[in-house]
Design a protein around this nucleic acid. Sequence first.
DNA 1: GTTTTCTTTTGCCCTATGTCAAAAAATCAT
DNA 2: ATGATTTTTTGACATAGGGCAAAAGAAAAC
Lengths: 201, 201
Amino acid sequence: MTSSALPTTTVSAEDFAEVAVGMRQAWPVSDSALAELRACLAPCRFRKRHLLIREGAALGKAYFLNRGMTRSYWIVDGQEVTTSFSTEGGLVFSMDELYYGLASQEYVETVEPVEAFAITVDDLRRLTCGNLELTNWMRVIHQNEYRRIHRSHKEQLTLPARERYEAFAAQFPSVCRRARLTDIASYLGITSSTLSRIRAK
Amino acid sequence: MTSSALPTTTVSAEDFAEVAVGMRQAWPVSDSALAELRACLAPCRFRKRHLLIREGAALGKAYFLNRGMTRSYWIVDGQEVTTSFSTEGGLVFSMDELYYGLASQEYVETVEPVEAFAITVDDLRRLTCGNLELTNWMRVIHQNEYRRIHRSHKEQLTLPARERYEAFAAQFPSVCRRARLTDIASYLGITSSTLSRIRAK
DNA sequence: GTTTTCTTTTGCCCTATGTCAAAAAATCAT
DNA sequence: ATGATTTTTTGACATAGGGCAAAAGAAAAC
């Protein structure tokens, strides 16, 4: 074990259990690989509207979400453009930081109070590039993200605003209830006025 | 070595050299891993407008492109929606087939005469899930695709048609010259009439 | 080289959605 | 609770880009 930073409080196997179950839905990871990962985690909490990742910075952390929701967005000439939401069981990280050693291009903020396990991107990179099981697990994470955005992009190209919203609401009912109208609108590529009118029926 | 099908004609190290160079741009793969991969390849050629992958079918092959270009698309109520182009050095495959054992949801057709190395999806899956170097290499392939579509989606949400076209032309000048106007238009989510007018300046 | 087929261009009109702004409602802080 | 702030709703108007169809041009087939 060569954990490089963080763990001040250790995460118990019990606390980690839920994360483990979630991970195994993506790829069968052995107990020993999970134990290695667990040793690198530190529990943490954040209030609503806290920035976990910010553009132009390399904060060097990633988060396994246990409770709460986050939102990733770009700022494109002053406008926030929401690109994804993550909820319980999700892994929040900046690909730029994790793989390219760059500052993030996106922001990630908590939309609700969040409970999570933090890991340094160095540890996460070491584990997910050096261990076959975890490398495969991480590949599945990327695959899933790819499929989500691929689908979303397809819908963007083929469906009118109302149907995009309906598809979103059907696929992510929980997110749809918990997120602000404004953020959902920017995720769908429409204005909040339009989404408000759509919802008004 | 447990190659499962295909190789009637073996691919020589010389013929494979170009592919190897391309692969190493994504991830440092050792000679031995590359040799294992090479043993599973079969050279092949296709005329223009040949369907390499078709919706609802599991043809069971993936292709390393040496020469020529392909186009991936969905058919959404009768309309073709182009989702990507692949050129020399690219790997063409259906994620549904490769990882989910499903029939493909997309079509991939050759846009030009194509020279490629074919591999069965079974071999590709075995190699890219079972060998740490190749698993990492494949993860980078997914990452890159993810970033492309992420960017493209962002542009879809923030730029007007003309600027999307300009960004596309700047990022993929070769594709922009080689692909039909119609296909580029559908990739950008605009009609061919609109793209024609944009080009007319 | 002619004919056929496929692709691009162009014109005209139309609608989904954007823009801007102000009022109403909800949420937050004290 | 009460006022301050943020978010959502609603209205009036503007426009980018779609739909359709015909003509022009290019490529493929014979």
